[in-house]
Design a binder for these strands. Structure first.
Lengths: 244, 244
DNA sequence: GGTCAAAATATTGTCGACAATCTGCTCGAC
DNA sequence: GTCGAGCAGATTGTCGACAATATTTTGACC
């Protein structure tokens, strides 16, 4: 009952992919994208041979890809019973947000020490854009600016380990990024909090930067927690955006 | 120059390993242990067929294992050029310690809320043992108690995500655990810091617990930083223990 | 009609073989 | 003597086939 017109797309690019590139790597990227972007539903079974056909690679490559994704926390795998897309519960989403918060606070601290003037300028510019979006009421654009801001802070931290861990956590959350609520009035406060963070980074004050980021992210976690309990009350809460 | 009487031990346990267990999983555990315990040197090449013989599995299984270990950060892998044991520089060791600190601070916060009386009692007992070791001057045993303490706090936090991330970071650090210096007098201060953490957890004060753990771990990071620069000065600094 | 055993099917775990790629070396040209 | 082309050897990337295990279906019996 899966329809499945499988072998249609690629004329079996079998063997080695064009130049240099490795087929398995592309398969990894594609499958990962499919999971992260939500094209594959949670708990969906991932049958190796099906994926092999879809991705145009052999089953061995698929198996390697699944092992990587399992280690990454995007897939669960029971012995002799195959792999499935990992289901992230709301409780886990809160956990992930907390862990991410702890690491981003570290990143903010490092950024206060290591950010270049150009990076600070970019943050100021982003802040201005966010302010404009807020006034215009364009929450989607505000959210984009928000994402750029956090990405820039992490980049400015030059903290490879934190960057790597945060990226991993973010991947598990993408589904929730697009399905979480925006509490009325949260945006305005979010903006103030971001301004404080940038101020501290520009001043080169690591303690203040860490504290500001911690303050900011604790509010995000609170919002998420409230959302979770509210969602437990009545299932039909409208999916909006939460502002980090 | 490896002697290599390869096909002698297992009469090719090929196919499936005895009961239920999966051969590849055992191979993963074994190779991981070999890397973490330092039996394989950093930058050591990991030739697939050699590992296959050593571990008694096929090359495909080895390949899957290597993919997992790469995702875990214990192995680096260049396309068409094979895998090597990842070399963790002292700068990275500092990064890892910082990230671990951020996550353990979160764990301490959660533990303050969720720890059971039995868990707190275990911490008190461990604290007493550590005190005894300190008086007896047995630093190795003190270090063990220290490890038990941190493990218990993490367990008490019931924070699955933080636990998972910390475990991953710890694996990359084991080599340094055994090669870092103990600054004279650090143990005594370390003990006081641990006592404060347990006090805060027992009192059910998350803010205090987080702050105490943060304070503790910032000192650990400082010690590590000093050790790194000192080590840069004169290569022959004696390898001791650092107390987390 | 329900229930349990046994065959049939589906899917995973494992392996060896082959092709592609990289590495180091030889060897002739200059 | 140095340099690059071209050839071995080693090692990785990929695949399909077979064995082991789980799941579903069938069918006999009560």
């Amino acid at each position: 009952m899966d329809a499945m017109p499988p072998p249609q797309s690629v004329p079996t690019t079998a063997g080695r992919n064009g130049r240099g590139r490795i087929a398995a790597d592309e398969a990894y990227t594609r499958l990962r994208e499919d999971i992260v972007r939500g094209r594959l539903m949670p708990n969906q079974r991932l049958v190796e041979v099906d994926l092999a056909v879809t991705l145009g690679v052999g089953r061995t490559a698929v198996r390697t890809v699944l092992a990587r994704l399992e280690q990454e926390g995007l897939v669960v795998h029971e012995p002799n019973r195959g792999a499935r897309v990992r289901m992230v519960t709301e409780a886990e989403a809160l956990e992930i947000t907390q862990a991410r918060g702890a690491l981003e606070a570290l990143a903010a601290r490092e950024a206060a020490v290591k950010a270049t003037p150009a990076e600070v300028a970019f943050m100021r510019e982003t802040l201005a854009q966010m302010s404009a979006c807020l006034k215009a009421g364009d929450l989607l654009a505000y959210s984009d600016g928000n994402a750029r801001m956090h990405a820039k802070i992490i980049e400015a931290s030059r903290h490879h380990t934190a960057t790597r861990l945060i990226a991993g956590l973010k991947a598990q959350m993408v589904r929730f990024q697009y399905r979480t609520v925006l509490v009325p009035g949260r945006s305005a406060r979010s903006f103030v909090e971001h301004t404080r963070i940038v101020d501290a980074i520009e001043a080169g004050d690591p303690d203040a930067a860490e504290a500001a980021m911690r303050y900011h992210l604790s509010h995000v976690a609170d919002t998420l927690r409230e959302m979770t309990s509210a969602h437990a009350q009545h299932r039909a809460s409208p999916p909006h955006l939460v502002h980090f």
